[in-house]
Amino acid sequence: MLGKLIKHEFRATGAWVALLCAGVIVFAGLTRLFMLLADMMELFAIPMGISMFFYVLLMIASVVVVVVLNIRRFYKNVYGDEGYLTLTLPVSRWKIIVSKLLVGVTWSLLSGLCALLSLLIIASSQTLWQTLGEVMYYLGYAFDEILYILRMPAPLLIVEIVLMAVISLFSGLLMCYASISLGQLFTGHRLLGSVIGYIGLNTVVQIITSAFSFALTLTQGVVLDFEELLQYSRQIDGFTAFNLQVNIVLAIILQLFLMAGYFTISNAIMKKSVNLQ
């Protein structure tokens, strides 16, 4: 049943995302075309400017809109009128959350990929490639510096960074689901309730994270201040480096723990306290 849920979730939400991605790519292509033409004829600078304007607008919109669409989909399909259909399907409620989560994260990744691809299209000229190369060079330099501080193999760090990024995508969306679900505990003004739920949840997470890093500082005597670390990077000893390595793993575990919390809140409310209007 999870497979069917995912299939129908893709079907129901795909059109918008496809439209956005296509828009971003098309306007990137158009802008690039006008750039080439403008090199030959001054006149084409005007359509280039217009196309560039829409490209930038769409590019920013695509990232924001996908997040909004994901949140709206959950709210409407679970707690809106469509909930009468969704919540009476012969499937477990946790599968409903998982299907929406997987599809939502896929769309976020896809819109990110489209944005990246569109950048490559725009940047497909000599000078822009050069700039991109310079950016990459500095990023590589920063990465080497971090590797030096942490004294760990590069592949492992890359895996951890990617893991962290993906987990924060999941965790971010799950936190929104949990906030929306908390809003359902209110009798009226449930959207406002969701906002209050978000603020409340955020506060709790801040407290947990602060307590967590405070505990680490106490046990390890390490201050988790990135600026300070860079400043004294050459003086960091093996013991501190090891502690930092451990801390990255602990941070990932903390994120997973928070994710489980968000999931439990949504699932419990969908099962026990749901009361559609």
Binding site: E82, G83, L85, T88
Partner: peptide, 13 residues
């Protein structure tokens, strides 16, 4: 839910 067919009192599709 496998054996119950439910028609809510509103437009839910």
């Amino acid at each position: 839910a496998v054996i119950v067919s439910y028609l809510p009192e509103r437009n839910y599709l």
